[in-house]
Design a binder for these strands. Sequence first.
RNA 1: GGAUGCUUAGCUCAGCGGGAGAGCAUCGCCCUUACAAGGCGGGGGUCGUAGGUUCGAAACCUACAGCAUCCACCA
Length: 858
Amino acid sequence: MLDKHYDHFQVEEGKYEKWKKEGYFTAGDVSKQPFSLVIPPPNVTGKLHLGHVMDTVPDDIIIRYKKMRGFDALWVPGMDHAGIATQAKVEEKLRKQGISRYDLGREKFLEKAWEWKKEYGDSIHEQWAKIGLSVDYTRERFTLDEGLSAAVRKVFVTLYKEGLIYQGEKIINWDPELRTALSNIEVIHQDDEGEFFYFKYPIVGSEDSLIVATTRPETMFGDTAVFVNPKDKRYAHLVGKKAINPANGEALPIMADEYVDLSFGTGAMKCTPAHDPNDFALAKKYGFPLIKVLDESAKMNELCGKYQGMDRYECRKALVEDIKAKGLLDHIEKMVHSVGHSERSGAVVEPMLSKQWFVKMRPLADRVLAQQQSEEKVEFLPHRFENVLIRWMRNVDDWCVSRQLWWGHRIPAYYHKQTGEVVVSETPMDPELYDQDEDVLDTWFSSALWPFATLGWPEKTPDFERYFPTSVLNTGYDIIFFWVARMVFQSEHFTDKVPFKTVVIHGLIRDEKGRKMSKSLGNGIDPIDVIEQYGVDALRYFITTNATPGLDMRYSNEKLQAAVNYLNKIWNAVRYVEMTLGEGYEPKAIDPKSLGVLEKAILSKEMETIRRVSRFMDRYEFGKASDVLYDFVYDDFCSTYLEMSKVSMAKEGDQEQVKAVLYKVVRDIVLLIYPYCPFIGEEMYLSLPKTKASIMLESYPEIEKAYVSKAAERKAELLYTMIKDARAYKSGEGLAPNAAVNIVVSPKAPFAGMEDYLSRFTFAKKVEFKPEAPKGTTFAYDGFSMVIESDVDEGKLKESLLKEKETLKAEIDRGERMLGNPGFLAKAPKEKVALEQEKLESNKNKLQTVEDRLAKLG
RNA sequence: GGAUGCUUAGCUCAGCGGGAGAGCAUCGCCCUUACAAGGCGGGGGUCGUAGGUUCGAAACCUACAGCAUCCACCA
C-alpha cells in the first residue's frame, strides 16, 4: 500500500542502481527488431545543466517506450573531450596555481587534462543516474578513446588521400588568448562600440591628400595599397598615383576595384592582405605581398618599428596619437560594428594569415544536398530545420580543422626532419626520421563520427551492422551547424548512409524571465537542485511536456509544482485502487460483454487514449501525448469513473467487475506515464498486485477492440451530463451543493441502475422513473427528460434562466445563419451540415424548456 | 542585407479552416477516509494591426508593427 503522499526521495532511492545491476539497460536481444540512438555527448568541462536534461530525457523516454514496444533498443552513452573548452578550463585551473601550460609541457599538461576528465566524467555519470537515463554502459565511449582515435586517423588519412584535406596558408580566425586557430562557427559576432579613424594619406608629388578610414589602425603596417571604386569621380584623378601610409611613411599605390563600396566611409579603403579576408582576396587578384604584423598573442611584430612588442590595442592608441601629432588625423567617429569574439575565451578574434589544415567542403556538402533530395534523407522534426542544414551546406566555406592546442586528436601528419616532406599516415612514422605535426584537430572532427564510430566503425562490428544507421537523434537547434551537419556529411561520405533517420530538434531552455541562461547573468539552474526540490520525475515531466517542438521554453517553478501535483494525483489514484482491491487481491480476467455501462465506457475511453498517446509517442511528440493522458487521468478516470466506482462498490453483485476494471485502468495509466517518470512509475507498479520484477520488463498497453464501445460512452455521458446539469442548476439557484432535491426522470431511464449515481452526485433524496413528467424544473435530453423538485429562490432562478436563454438564443442564431446560408449548404461537407442541424434542433428544444420554465415563474 | 520563429485569459503557453482551451493566479462553497499537493462551482479573451481568399478565418495568403533567434557584411 502506498503512503498518503508521494515522497520523491523515497521513490527515487535505489531504483537506478537496481535497473543497472539487473542489466535492463543493456541491449543485444537479437530476436527483437533493433532500435538505436546515441547520446549527444556532454562535454567533460563541468557539471551538466538543464540543456543536457533537454537533450537526454526525450531520448530516455524514447528508449523506454521502444523497449516496452518490443524493440531491442540501444542507447549508446559517452562524453566529448571538448578540446578547446576543456583545455581552457584546465589552463584556467593551472593559472590559479600560477602555472602555465608551457611550464608543464605537453605531456604533463595532458596528464592534468586526463585527471580533469576523470573527475568530471565521474560527476556526469552521477548526474545521468540521478536523471534516470537508461543508457547502455557496456557500450560507453569517449571521443578520445582508442577506438574513436583510430576512426579519426582513418578519416583524416582517407580525406587527405582523396584530396579533401589539405594544408594551406589562408586567412583564419585567430584567438590570441588561447593562441589557436578557430573555425568560422566558433566565432561569435556581437555589436561592439568602436571607433572609426579617418586618416589623411598625402599624395606623392602633390599637396593633395586622400582620407582613408579604418577601425584597426594597428594593421596599417601591413597595408599594401589603397583602393577606390572605378566609378568614383571623387578619386578618378588619383588612381595610378601613390599615397603615403601615415603609419610608416611607405608609398602605397592607389588602385581601382569594383569591390569598394562608394557609400561606405570615405569611399577609399586600405588593403591589408594578411589581416582581412576580403583584402586577401584582392591581394591574390593583384599579386600583392602578404604582410603579417601581429604575432600569435596579437602583439606587434618586428615590422612595426617602435611599436614592436606592444599589444594590438596599446599600439592602436599610441599610433593614433602619433599620427595626430603629425597632423594626419582627420577625425574619429564612434561606431557600433560587429566584432568577432572567440566562443570559448571571449577574446576579440584577429583575422590572420596562417598555415592550417582544411577540409574541402564543397564535394562533401554537395553529397548531402543530393542526399536530401532522395528518399534516403535525414528527416527533420520540425521540418523547417532542414532548411538550416541545406542553407549551410550551400554556402559552406572550407573547414579549418587544425588547432594549436594539446588536448585532442593529434594530427596524423609527419614532416621529414631533413627534407620536410609531408607524410599523412594512420600508423606513426619513425620518430628518428619524422616529427609529428604539433597541432590537434577541432573537437567537432571527432564528434562528427560519433554515430558510427561509437558502434565500431571502421571495423564491421556486429553492433555497427545491427544498429547503424541510428533511428533518431534528439538535439537543440543551436548545434545543427556544429554537430548535426558534420555527422551528416561524414556519415554519408564514409558509410554511404545517413547517420540517423530522423532528427528531432528542440528549443533552448530559458530562465523564468525568458532570458538565456548564462554564467555572466548568473541565472543558470542546476538540475540537481531542481531534483532535490521537486524530484526527478517532475523535472522530466516538466521539461518534455511544456515545450513545443523547436521552440524555446521557460523554466518555471509553478509548472514543476504542477507536475508534482499531477504525479501525486496518479499516486493517490493508485492508492485508492489498492485500498479498494484489498489485501491479497488476485487480478481476474474481464469479460467485456458482461460489464456495466460505466465500466464499458471507461475502458472504451482508455482504448481511445492509448491509441492517441501511442500515435504521438511514435512521432516523438511528447507534449501532445502527455496532454491526452493528462485529460484521461483527470477527467475521465479520477473525476468521473473513480468517483462513480465508490457508488458501485457499495452495491451488491458488481464489486468484482469494478475491481477488475479499476485495476486494469490504473495499471495501464502507470504504464503510460512510466516512460516520462520512471521512478514513480516503478514504485507504483511494484506496489500493485501481480507484477514482474520491474516495470522495465513490461510491455506497453495495447488497444483491445473488444473494449471499444462508443454506445456505452454515449450512455455514460448522458448520466454525467445530467449530474452536471443538476449541480449547475443548484448552484445557479443559490442552493448548497448538498441541498436536498427530488429528481424524476421520464418516461424511462436511459440505462438501468443509473439512479444510484444520480442521487449520490446530486444529493437527491429520491430519484424516480415515471412515464409522465411532473411539473417542475425540466431538463430535456434526447428521448427523455429530468425534472428537479426543490425549494427555489425564484429571483435567482429567473436570473439564471434568462442568462441561459441568451446563450441558447445566440447558439440558435448562429446555427440558423449557417444553415440559412446557401453557400454553406452547397459547399460544406454533408456530415457538418447534418451535425449543425442536429445541434440546432437540440438547442431549440432546450430553449423551449427554458421558456416554459420562465413562463411558470411569471 | 537574407532567413526563421513568436504575438491567443492577469502570467506561462497549447490550438493552426467549422461552437475560444490548459496550467498557475483569481472569486464562491467544501478538511466528504484516494489525493487540501485536493474536490465542486464560477469570473475572465473583439486570438498584434490592416487588407484579402473562403459558405465559414485565431487558424490560409499579403502587407505592416513589435519581440526574439540564426546567417552574411561592415574598410
